[in-house]
Each structure stands twice: as structure tokens, then as C-alpha cells.
Design a protein around this nucleic acid. Structure first.
Length: 615
RNA sequence: GCAUCCGUAGCUCAACUGGAUAGAGCGUUGGUCUUCGGAACCAAAGGUUAAAGGUUCAAAUCCUUUCGGGUGCACCA
């Protein structure tokens, strides 16, 4: 596709040179919200006016002079006209030729060339002691979508799931298993889904008991020591239980087409001595110190520039989660030695999945580590520990890496049930205010069956609805999940877009004039476009901008918004004109084909299916 | 208490990082369909962007203060 953006950029900078304006002040070229203000606009005259006071009375006057200069050089098939408007904006109007060429180009668009980085992207990382709820799913959806977006724009992305299998919660679960307060019953450790259900209950139960029972507490501490030291009955039990829970979790997400490349186990960071190496490196730095008095006596801490110093090693010698996380990130950047790996052949996903295995795995040099850039999808409550990992990287002299460490800081999912009391609550396992992923899938499916009956693509629509719901907001914001409105999917929603897509596909199948017409013989300059057709054409031309913005800002919601606008615009067009059997059938079907291409591309990027029929 | 984020229509959220008349969905009210998928389309009502000041050609966005909320300040993860 021709790049009209850089063409405009050059026209402006040439005009500035002609006018002898020498300035590095930043001005922007943007797409105005209201297309009557042009297809592109620049605020250059307003931004650089201070440098032009010698010959221009006002920003607007300056803009006129820039436009005069541009017009002298203007000889482009893409740009129709350039105008000054408002307080001094320069508006560029693109030609019909440009839009129609673009309409054909979009069909073969299968990637952009915006980055060639090796990116390590980590998401989901649920502690293996609970059933995933929709807050966790928000994490997974954001991560999955960002991985797809970053790949689409040209990067090499490895998606990692970090499995915390040595923490205190694991010790609690092992203790719960041994004590059997919540009976494990006849479940086998092979029945991963049942193990998960049991663990959710048993964990809450055992934590309550530990609070008021010092003997249990010390028993748990002993178990944790055993787990960390490895090769004990407790550590084997911990692995069996956490593996079962991990498998159940991966099955759930795999069923929704959320897939990973690698599971990194925290226990392997210990086994592989990565922690020991990291510890030795840290000890050489003055910002890393052992406290010898006060409450934190015997702990190793890292100095934080803006916050309280962070404990990295407990007084009992066991590293904290953050400690292992530092080691993990040094590994990601390729600073310390690599793991060994094996294929994790659990059948939880279509794509091949690997896991770390220190004892019997194989080496895959440079396959999973040595990232240029790191993207971690971690909720906003973890900002402090994330900052301490960054701080440790700086302390170790890797400021360069700290800069390439992106924490996608996503907000809470609160719950509101307008069928109930309308109160907004935080999800909490103990209070029973949790909507698990599997229960919500079931609720939504029943609701759809009641409205539309059964149809073959129903699962794709259910998953699409949930994913869209979780991706359509800015990741940074806390969101309120309203159960009843989430069950009633219309408007700005996944099903609306999938419905539009299916409707368009049905048109294409019915039309007898679906020819893959070449650009030249269909480029009909004289063709009178209806306003609805022209709006849709213009929207299709925004695809690349939207995707690159999403990649740049690590924000999938722009794609959701675009999908909705595209669908709405298509539906408006569909309602305004007859397509099949009209005089313009060939062009209109061509426009429909291009719309489905753009929709499909974007649906792929947010991990939502595009079924051809919802009947 | 300290730190940090947030406060936009009845509700849930946008607003291209300082740009043009602050936009959508839901809900409400009223319309459209011999047109191909009504899970649709069109329209109306709904706003002092929490409040007050400041910065400049321009503020929901930046600064200050006040009010109201979330989160963090564990040898948890």
C-alpha cells in the first residue's frame, strides 16, 4: 500500500525548508475525528508559529503560507486538496483513487513491517491454587491479543506462562492435601479439572485454619522448606498437584484458542541455579545489602529509589518471588545461562508447547531467551514488585534492559450484578464474589441458546463475546463487569461484529459477480460513490493506522473500537443500498469483500473467530 | 499517615497523549423493513468533563488546592 502519511510528512517539511523555518519543535499529523476536516490534518502552523512571527501575523496566516508552498509542489494522485481551517489547521483531503486502490490492497495485507524485535511476552501466570476467574481471563486475553498484534507488525514473539510452583500458596495446598480437611476423596491426581475444583475449596479452608493454628503454620513452613530444597516427598507432591492445576488451566484457555509457547517453572529457576547466579551478581553491588537490625534483620534487600526497599531474600535464606523474578528476567534478556526444555505434550492446545526441565531436558540455544524487549501483562497491584525487578536490573548495570521492560499494567475487574442489588464488588474467593471463567461460559451459552437456539458456531460466538467484553476497554482502567448486560450481547460487542461478518459472507456467497477484479479495470474514476460507500471506504483505509497504534501503545482496545466502527459502517451501507442485483453490484460486492478482509484481520488480532454463518 | 492512580451523559466506557462542535454502547422515547441474515438500520432527549484557580493561540488532558473513590506501602505472590 502506498504510504500517503510519509508523503504528507515530506510535503510539510519541504514547505518549512522553503519558508526558512528551522525548528525541531514537535508537530503532529493526525486523522481528524470529523472527516469533514480532511483525511489528515496537521497542527504544524500552530506549533511553529513562534518561529514565524517575522512574516506571519497569526497561526492561521502562517498556515496559509505553508499551504501556498505545498501547493506549488503538489503533484500527487493521492492528495486532492489542501486547506487551512479553524485556528490554523492544515487539512489534507485524499483522492478517490487512493481509497479505491487501498480497498484492493487491504485484501492481501498479512502483516506490517514496523518492528523486528525479539519479544518475550509473559501473561496469565495464575497461582496454581484457584479456578481462573474473569479477571485472570482479562489478563490472558490482553496478553494473547498483544502477542498477535506484535507478531503482525513484524516482531518475533515468545509467549510465556510463568508457573509459580514453589511459593507459600503451594505449601498451603500440599498441607491441605496431607490433612484432608476438605476431602480429596476418590479423585486421582490425573483428573486435573477435579483437582482444580478441590484446590479452590481446600486452599481457602486451609488458609483460615493456619491463621489461628500455630502448629499448622510451622508445618506449612517446613513443607515450604522441603519444596524449595527439592527431592522430598513434599516437593514431588507439590509438582503433581501444581501440574494438574496447570494442565486444567491450560486446557481451559486452550479451549478458547489462547495458546503459549513456553511454561517456565519457578522450581526450575532454583534447580538450574539461576537464583544462585543472580544472588552472586547482586551481592557485588552496594545497592544490595543484608539488613542487620530491625524487623528485617537477616534479609537481603535492594534499594529502591522512590519506594521502600524491597526484600529479595528472606531471613531463612529462601528468595522471595521477586528474587526469582529477577533471575527470570536476567534469563529472558540472555544475561545468565539458559534452561533445558522438553515438549509439554498434554494436548491442551494446537501449537507445540514447551516447558523448562532442568534434569532431563534438551538445549535449544537462543530459542526462548535473549529477548530485545519484554512485555509483561501483570495487574496493577503488582506495580511495586515489578518496579523492584526493574530497579534490580538497573543496579546490576542493565539500565538498557530496564528501559525495554514493559509492564502492561491492567486494572481490576469488579463485578456488578444488576439482577441483584446493583452493588459493585471486588472479586474475592473467600466472600464467594467470584465469576469463574467456566461458569461464565456456561451462563452465556445458555443465554444465547435461549435467544437464538443452537447453531454450530455457538462456542465461537460465546468466546468471542467474552473476549471482546474484556478487551474493549483501555487495559489500564479498572472495569466493572455487569453480568446481566454481558449476557445481553448487542451493540458494541463481539456478536455484533461476528454477525456483521457472517451477513457479509452470506452476501458474497449469493452474488454472481464475485470476481477478483484487478485494480486497474475496476478503478472507475467516474463511479459515483454514495456517502455510505465512501464512509466505509475511508474506514477501511484506517486499518494500518489502528493496528500500528495498538502495537505502539500495547493497547488492543483500539482494534475493538475499529472493528465496531467498521461493522456499523458496513451495516449502514447494507441498509442504505441494494447490493445484489443492483447496477453497481460488482463494486458493492468488492467493497463487501474488502470489509470482510479488514474484519477478519482485526478479529484475528484480538483472538476472536470469524464464522461464516451464525445460523 | 506516605505513595500512586482515578473521578467524563441515568449506567458501562471512548476521546489519536495539548487540538476543531467531548463521542459510543446500554437504557428511555419515536421511527425504518416487497433489501440480499431484525443479533439490523435511522432519529431525538441526555454534559458547567467532581469543584475552584493557573499555564497558552488552544485544557477532559499539564500545574496548584479542595472534595470523593481505588490500589500499594508483607520475609504474600
Amino acid at each position: 500500500m502506498n504510504n500517503v502519511f510519509s508523503e504528507i510528512e515530506q510535503l510539510i517539511s519541504k514547505a518549512l525548508v522553503d519558508l526558512n523555518i528551522d525548528s525541531t519543535d514537535k508537530y503532529i499529523i493526525e486523522r481528524p475525528a470529523d472527516s469533514s476536516n480532511g483525511d489528515f490534518a496537521s497542527n504544524v502552523a500552530m506549533k511553529l508559529f513562534p518561529h514565524a512571527k517575522a512574516f506571519a501575523k497569526s497561526p492561521k496566516d502562517f498556515a496559509e503560507k505553508i499551504v501556498d508552498s505545498i501547493s506549488k509542489n503538489l503533484n500527487s494522485k493521492n492528495i486532492d486538496k489542501v486547506q487551512v481551517a479553524g485556528p490554523g489547521f492544515i487539512n489534507f483531503y485524499l483522492s478517490k483513487t487512493y481509497f479505491i486502490e487501498n480497498m484492493y490492497a487491504v485484501r492481501s495485507l498479512n502483516g506490517l513491517n514496523l518492528g523486528k524485535k525479539k519479544i518475550s511476552l509473559e501473561h496469565t501466570q495464575i497461582n496454581p491454587n484457584k479456578e481462573p476467574h474473569i479477571g485472570h481471563l482479562r489478563n490472558a486475553c490482553i496478553g494473547d491479543s498483544l502477542a498477535k498484534i506484535l507478531r503482525f507488525v513484524g516482531n518475533d514473539v515468545t509467549v510465556q506462562y510463568y508457573q509459580n510452583d514453589v511459593g507459600q500458596q503451594i505449601a498451603s495446598i500440599v498441607l491441605a492435601y496431607k490433612k484432608q480437611y476438605v476431602a480429596f476423596g476418590k479423585i486421582s491426581l490425573e483428573d486435573c479439572e477435579e483437582v482444580l475444583t478441590w484446590a479452590s475449596k481446600a486452599y481457602v479452608d486451609i488458609e483460615k485454619r493456619i491463621e489461628s493454628d500455630l502448629d499448622l503454620k510451622s508445618e506449612k513452613d517446613q513443607i515450604q522448606q522441603n519444596i524449595v530444597r527439592q527431592n522430598s516427598e513434599d516437593s514431588r507432591l507439590a509438582i503433581s498437584i501444581t501440574d494438574a492445576i496447570l494442565k486444567a488451566t491450560l486446557m481451559l484457555f486452550g479451549g478458547m484458542s489462547i495458546e503459549y509457547d513456553l511454561v517456565v517453572k519457578e522450581s526450575d529457576i532454583l534447580k538450574n541455579q539461576l537464583w544462585q547466579i543472580t544472588f552472586d551478581l547482586l551481592k557485588q553491588k552496594p545497592e544490595f545489602y543484608m539488613s542487620d537490625d530491625g524487623e528485617r534483620s537477616g534479609c537481603w534487600l535492594v534499594k529502591m529509589s522512590k519506594d521502600e526497599d524491597k526484600v529479595i531474600v528472606r531471613s531463612n535464606g529462601i528468595p522471595t518471588y521477586t528474587g526469582n523474578d529477577i533471575a527470570y528476567h536476567l534469563w529472558k534478556f540472555g544475561v545468565i545461562k539458559d534452561f533445558r526444555y522438553e515438549v509439554l505434550d498434554w494436548g491442551t492446545q494446537g501449537k507445540q508447547l514447551f516447558t523448562t526441565n532442568t534434569n532431563s531436558g534438551e538445549l535449544y540455544p537462543n530459542r526462548f531467551n535473549k529477548a530485545d524487549s519484554i512485555v509483561n501483562i501483570i495487574d496493577t497491584t503488582q506495580t511495586y514488585p515489578q518496579e523492584s525487578v526493574k530497579e534490580a536490573l538497573k543496579v546490576l548495570g542493565y539500565s538498557k534492559f530496564a528501559v525495554n521492560y514493559h509492564h502492561v499494567n491492567y486494572g481490576f475487574v469488579f463485578l456488578k450484578d444488576s439482577l441483584g442489588d446493583n452493588a459493585v464488588v471486588k472479586m474475592s474467593g473467600r466472600k464467594g464474589t467470584v465469576v469463574t471463567v467456566s461458569s461464565f461460559i456456561k451462563m452465556l451459552k445458555v443465554s444465547m441458546q435461549n435467544q437464538f437456539g443452537d447453531f454450530s458456531a455457538i462456542d465461537e460466538v460465546v468466546f468471542g463475546a467474552i473476549k471482546f467484553e474484556l478487551l474493549k476497554y483501555d487495559t489500564y482502567q479498572d472495569i466493572t463487569f455487569d453480568i446481566s448486560s454481558a449476557l445481553d450481547q448487542k451493540g458494541f460487542s463481539g456478536p455484533y461484529i461476528q454477525y456483521t461478518y457472517a451477513r457479509a459472507q452470506s452476501l458474497i456467497e449469493k452474488s454472481v459477480k464475485v470476481r477478483q477484479a484487478s485494480v486497474t479495470n475496476s478503478l472507475d474514476e467516474a463511479l459515483a460513490l454514495t456517502p455510505e460507500e465512501f464512509d466505509l471506504l475511508k474506514l477501511i483505509a484506517k486499518l494500518e493506522d489502528v493496528v500500528s497504534r495498538s502495537a505502539f501503545e500495547l493497547a488492543p482496545h483500539y482494534i475493538c473500537k475499529y472493528l465496531f466502527e467498521l461493522s456499523k459502517s458496513f451495516n449502514t451501507f447494507y441498509n442504505s443500498s441494494k447490493i445484489i442485483g443492483s447496477d453497481n453490484e460488482e463494486f458493492r460486492i468488492g467493497l463487501t469483500v474488502s470489509t470482510t478482509s479488514a474484519l477478519k484481520t482485526c478479529l484475528d488480532l484480538v483472538g476472536i473467530g470469524a464464522p461464516h454463518s451464525l445460523k
